[in-house]
């Protein structure tokens, strides 16, 4: 980290502490955080048990939080920012309910630390339809009954959005017969199932989920 950034960080921290130390957890921009001159990374070294200023960029908005380093990205989104669209299923990487997009890649927010994702572009299910009109994948889930109770659905939808992007970049999966092939890989149902296998659905809505993803794939190409 260079000297300028360190200085900026010091300022940001002081300003932040002045503004919110007694207030508690969530501080929304722009009132408490001047994004213009603020550093991308607010905390580089935090003592055990201490609260650190953590700046997260979620769905195009800046949030300045005060968190312990052990807070996961999932808990930061749900408990500190109040974006409860992202769900907690297993909290251990085994179900995909917590899937969010970080710099356009899908990850499990339950196995990520919020403090390690400062400066990243985070997108949750709430950010897929910013102006009210459903994202193509959301619309396809509605049309095809890609859910029953709906608990896994935000994770499924975020996962599918990233998956379609991955497929457009000709990435392989375990269902791809020849990994040496060049060019597009057809999104067969076997490919869709394998590529969506990081999202479990306890209701077993898989038939609808595969149909929805298939529809969304043909519509968006």
């Amino acid at each position: 980290m260079d000297a300028n950034r360190l200085t900026a960080e010091g300022h940001a921290r002081r300003r932040f502490l002045l503004g919110t130390a007694s207030l508690g957890v969530v501080a929304h921009t722009p009132s408490l955080f001047a994004a213009e001159d603020a550093p991308l990374v607010a905390s580089a070294h935090v003592e055990r048990g201490a609260l650190a200023p953590v700046r997260l960029q979620v769905n195009g908005r800046d949030y300045m939080l005060s968190l312990e380093p052990r807070v996961t990205l999932l808990d930061a989104l749900r408990e500190y920012i109040g974006l409860t669209g992202t769900k907690k299923g297993c909290d251990r990487g085994q179900c995909g309910a917590c899937t969010v997009l970080v710099n356009d890649r899908r990850i499990n927010a339950c196995l990520a630390l919020a403090i390690a994702h400062q400066g990243d572009r985070i997108r949750t299910v709430e950010g897929l339809a910013p102006h009210g009109a459903l994202h193509a994948v959301q619309a396809a889930f509605v049309e095809r009954d890609g859910f029953q109770c709906g608990y896994c659905t935000p994770g499924q939808i975020c996962s599918a959005v990233a998956m379609l992007q991955e497929a457009r970049s000709d990435t392989i999966s375990a269902a791809t017969q020849d990994v040496r092939q060049r060019g597009p890989i057809a999104l067969t149902d076997a490919e869709i199932r394998e590529r969506m296998s990081g999202n479990l659905c306890r209701c077993g809505a898989y038939v609808g989920i595969v149909a929805a993803v298939r529809d969304a794939a043909t519509r968006s190409t």
């Binding site: 990487g93 899937t99 990850i107 996962s159 990233a162 999966s173 990081g198």
Partner: peptide
Amino acid sequence: GASPQLRNM
């Protein structure tokens, strides 16, 4: 190995 999400991480 694992899942697409986990492999991204």
